[in-house]
Design a protein around this nucleic acid. Sequence first.
DNA 1: GGTAGACCTGGACGC
DNA 2: GCGTCCAGGTCTACC
Length: 295
Amino acid sequence: MTLVMPAFPPFSLSALIRSHGWRGLAPFSADENDNRLSRIERLHSGRVVELVMQEADGGVSVGVPSDLNHRELDEVQHKVKWMLGLDQDLSAFYAVARHELKLARVEGRAQGRILRSPTLFEDVVKTILTTNTSWAGTIRMVKALVSQLGDPLPSDPSRRTFPTPSQVASCDVRRLDSTTRLGYRTPSVLELARAVTSGVLQLESLQTTDEPTDQVRARLLEIDGVGAYSAANLLIMLGRYDFMPVDTWARKLVSHEWHNGEPVRSMDVEAAFERWGKWKGLAYWFWDWSYLAGH
DNA sequence: GGTAGACCTGGACGC
DNA sequence: GCGTCCAGGTCTACC
């Protein structure tokens, strides 16, 4: 069956899918034109289902098994709403972006939403797995976690869910390391999973907390393996844009945009977007980079 | 407060 | 096929 869910306008599923490399990380998968997003998801009932999301008039359609009960359907809708940011209102950002040539097209393209996982646990783990490695390494590590620890889709056991905190926590460090090759990141991922499983860390509450961004950032920085870059990245996914995720890629983009390709420092990246205030993260994310236009 | 070096893996490269 | 080098963000020790 198909659920149709409305989105706060403007909305473009393909723009959302392209917003983040997450679309290429299991258990997400997108078609070659980025028009269709699929995800293998475990529901609270224990059922493992495939969610197939496609553009619909005014929102998105979600293909799900026809025999889901009301509770399962509510859960699917709740998760899809969060993943796709369907209720996000970015009109205030568009109002300031209209006056900047390098952002002038974001509203017309319905850019601004960023694809996220149903749980912050998954986004934190994936973010840790993006650090100090190549993108190919991130894909490999996430794939290993999913294939080794996730639950299989009954109709196609080769496709699996992202493991829950308790599934990760139940591993010992040796097994986790030998099966997933996360390297020095293994203890960080294990510690995070155990803290969430035991309730010591109420990670998911950060999705909805009213705490100021500085406090949310401080709580993210307490997680082993999460530094300034990762925290800023995660804040953007939480809809808080006042910090810059400065990595080597950001330095390269800023270097070619304003410094003739000369090496730049983190503070130069920060300075370049300072004027965007609470929107700086979004302005950086969707900036029309000269470097990308030339490659 | 700033910075150098270790951490780990896989890929690129030279031989 | 083997060895070496490199990229990547975080953390710790040190100044």
